[in-house]
Design a protein around this nucleic acid. Structure first.
Lengths: 265, 265
DNA sequence: TTGCAAACTTAACATATGTTAAGTCTACAT
DNA sequence: ATGTAGACTTAACATATGTTAAGTTTGCAA
């Protein structure tokens, strides 16, 4: 296979299943496991940008894995203020607890055109029972989500507007890098409007604008037609006190070792 | 058994295992399941107040269930600012992802004298494999944690200091009520200092003081020697736009139905 | 190609909250 | 019982961020 062909086939694989890609980066998946995961990916759905996917209070019917595009979960108060809780990127699962929660607590909306794989949450149970290692990997994913939420709490609680902004731009950068959606120049597709970003970081959109300009004036970022470039990652990390590690799911934890150490095989 | 004896025995049961109590409120546990849970509760440890239990970056060695007392998870920046991420109350599990994460992301400290049951995270796997329903209940618990984190994000992002304070006081009230740690008068033991509460709600302790006084002046709360009383819950709910439901774990989800609906039995 | 709505920008002004500082009160240890 | 450190309180002042408002720019739809 030529290098070009190989790249093409990798790209196809990536496009088809960022979830599998992410998992297999961390763990050697066997064929049964890959088959089980592929079964989820059988049917895919494409949604428009800016559509509400899950309404707060709806009954959970299904889970989704994002294949392509961005989504976000948010909450709205009666005074019109909106808070974005988190973003979903390719490979992320929307409603990972759907199986066990009767109703959605928060709304989820698409931010861009969104390609997803929809599956019945029941299937997770079957899959876990057939392939127990996948349950552990799923658990790792949930643990990573927990760390991302914790970091959003810290961002909102103790960082200034300037620091918060630097921090989330790094956060998204590293999450996208992990799934191959950045280029070598520290540039990535950034579909978040300033208003939405303001609602993510708990500030007004006017101040969001001021803050982004300050980052630009300090040559830390540049934004050009929805392309975000981090011009000085080291300095951004310093400003935000960013710790790149937390967003990576348990790189040092060997699932096989865990399985071996119990009588679960 | 006299009413008094019954109350005593309930109390003993509650004291011994708020986790089992919480689970069995929601699901009829069978004897095998109760035995499996009791096994976790074999050894208990008592810790002093204000001790660091988990240092950030430590390797995870064990999980803990809180039997009695309060703990909290927090993060500290180099400028000395501290953010409390969440509180752990009786029945809560500290480090629920310990099995799958090599290192702790955040520090955990005891707030009061703390009685805990310590167990190896491996035991969870054995337990889940022997009693699959417990895995689902555990998953429900994780889902509830996720909702609590989301709510902390919304609190910090879009609510005013006054609203945030009302909101967290309600939150703690309902969490404690669920495990029988409130009295009929909407009063509960409240060991959080104003400084720690400020670090929880992302404000200065001076402003925390002002805000608590405003709530007192408006006859919404009263605080007397670490006893918090909510004098007007309806009004507090209105101010905070509090939704009491999210902190209850999946009340309407029948685990048995889920089990039945798959081939997992 | 034009028109329109959404996104972005900037300035002037308002305010919720932070900071500093100087207390008082409380509870526990000696 | 007394001293002391931590917790709480209050006031004066500072500032980061919010609000209002009036633009300009951008990108898409007709």
């Amino acid at each position: 296979m030529s290098l070009e062909e190989q790249e093409l086939s990798n790209e196809l694989l990536d496009n088809r299943s960022p979830l599998i890609k992410r998992f297999s980066h961390l763990h050697q998946l066997n064929n049964n496991e890959i088959d089980a995961l592929n079964k989820i990916h059988e049917q895919t759905t494409v949604l428009d940008a800016n559509e509400i996917i899950l309404h707060k209070g709806d009954f959970h019917k299904e889970c989704m894995i994002i294949i392509r595009g961005w989504a976000y979960r948010s909450s709205m108060l009666s005074n019109g203020k909106r808070q974005v809780i988190n973003y979903y990127l390719p490979g992320d699962i929307i409603s990972p607890f759907a199986l066990l929660q009767p109703k959605t607590d928060y709304s989820v909306a698409s931010l861009t055109i969104l390609e997803t794989c929809v599956f019945k949450p029941d299937y997770l149970l079957q899959m876990f029972s057939a392939e127990p290692r996948l349950a552990l990997i799923y658990g790792q994913m949930l643990g990573r989500e927990d760390s991302l939420s914790a970091e959003q709490i810290v961002r909102l609680g103790v960082r200034s507007a300037y620091e918060r902004t630097a921090h989330i731009l790094l956060d998204l950068y590293y999450r996208l890098k992990l799934i191959g959606l950045t280029d070598g120049e520290e540039t990535y597709f950034f579909p978040i409007t300033q208003e939405l970003l303001a609602d993510t970081l708990g500030m007004s959109f006017v101040h969001m604008n001021r803050t982004l300009h300050k980052l630009r004036d300090n040559n830390l970022i540049s934004i050009d037609s929805k392309q975000m470039t981090l011009l000085n990652i080291d300095e951004l990390i310093k400003i935000a006190e960013y710790q790149p590690s937390y967003s990576q799911i348990g790189l040092n934890t060997d699932i096989n070792e865990i399985i071996e150490s119990t009588n679960l095989h």
